[in-house]
């Protein structure tokens, strides 16, 4: 058995273990858990959107506990400053008693960063995350510092409360690999939740560490993608753009479509999904399954779309029906 054989085998086992652990913490949100794990193994940042009380923060905390990663939480508020996130230079005395400026790391210096209610911070503060999310570095005091690897930002936002919120700019949204919608749990799930005692996070076993996550991401990157499959992904991405699409709904309701980064996200997460399903190649089904979480936050709706209450998911559903599979 080659090294890759064992890596692939352990990939499936560990992923399954992680999903099982998370399912014990967050009941009835299997799809959310799967998509979150997929995004994690694809090496991207996640944006979780859902009304309060659905367990978004609980999921992120459980994930941090299961992965043996340094975890930090930033509660975004309107008065939060960029330095509160990235860190700042402070004056302090060294061993010889001289006063020197030293950099004090902000909460972003962690492996797993929970940006809770990210849309409550001002755009200035939100943009403090841009460099960190894209480059994995922070520049402060004229010096660029690398963030610890792996580095994941898991942000949450509330779609209902619009008062005192600042919608994320498009550039910021594009940095998130996936946008996962957290739905209300079903009736049977609510029954199980109601029977649970208290709100404490149960103890979560350690499933893997940061190095193993990086190794799994490297394995996922080797999954081959056939030309017809990647062509289908490209067709989907092109169909999200009003200027290149034939879909009437897109022309009418979408102002700007997905970028090449969206295509990378779509194919990358499809690779992970294929491995999670025990396959060593990406299929059309993987692309179709990952199209919504990978592209929904990359569609910028037009004024007409917003005024008519059209969701990006509705447009994507139309797209998936309209673009023929090879």
């Amino acid at each position: 058995m080659s090294a890759l054989d064992s890596s692939v085998e352990t990939f499936g086992q560990r992923a399954e273990d992680l999903v099982t652990v998370l399912k014990t913490v967050l009941l009835g949100q299997d799809e959310v858990i799967t998509q979150s794990v997929t995004g994690l193994f694809a090496g991207g940042h996640l944006l979780l959107e859902g009304v309060p009380g659905l367990g978004k923060t609980r999921l992120v905390r459980a994930l941090a506990n299961a992965l043996e990663l340094s975890y930090s939480r930033i509660q975004f508020t309107p008065d939060l400053m960029p330095a509160d996130i990235t860190g700042t230079m402070i004056l302090r005395e060294d061993d010889s008693g001289r006063r020197v400026f030293a950099f004090r790391q902000g909460p972003i210096f962690g492996n797993l960063v929970l940006a809770d209610e990210i849309n409550r911070a001002t755009p200035k503060t939100q943009s403090a995350l841009l460099e960190a999310m894209q480059e994995g570095t922070v520049t402060a005091g004229g010096e660029t510092r690398a963030l610890p690897a792996p580095f994941f930002v898991l942000a949450t936002q509330n779609p209902l409360e619009m008062e005192g919120t600042y919608p994320l700019p498009e550039a910021q949204l594009d940095r998130f690999l996936l946008k996962v919608l957290v739905p209300y749990p079903a009736h049977e799930v609510l029954r199980d939740i109601g029977r649970q005692q208290g709100d404490e996070l149960p103890s979560v076993p350690l499933v893997m560490d940061g190095d193993q996550i990086a190794a799994m991401a490297a394995v996922a990157g080797q999954v081959p993608v056939a030309t017809p499959v990647i062509d289908y992904a490209i067709a989907l991405v092109l169909a999200t753009r009003p200027e290149t699409t034939d879909v009437a709904e897109v022309k009418r309701y979408v102002r700007a479509g997905a970028s090449p980064r969206g295509l990378q996200a779509l194919v990358g997460t499809s690779r992970v999904r294929a491995l999670l399903n025990g396959r060593y190649n990406v299929s059309i089904d993987d692309i179709r399954a990952m199209a919504r979480p990978a592209l929904r936050h990359r569609l910028i709706l037009s004024f007409e779309g917003q005024s008519e209450g059209v969701s990006a998911d509705a447009v994507l559903d139309t797209l998936l029906d309209a673009v023929p599979a090879p």
């Binding site: 080659s2 890759l4 054989d5 692939v8 394995v219 080797q222 999954v223 081959p224 993608v225 056939a226 030309t227 017809p228 499959v229 396959r279 060593y280 190649n281 990406v282 299929s283 059309i284 089904d285 993987d286």
Partner: peptide, 24 residues
């Protein structure tokens, strides 16, 4: 799930993951 399509396209490749895919 596009296994044959992928295997056909990468039939001359000897990458470890591709070999695994062909075997599968």
């Amino acid at each position: 799930h596009d296994r044959l399509t992928t295997a056909l396209e990468f039939r001359t490749s000897s990458e470890p993951m591709v070999v695994l895919q062909r075997r599968q």
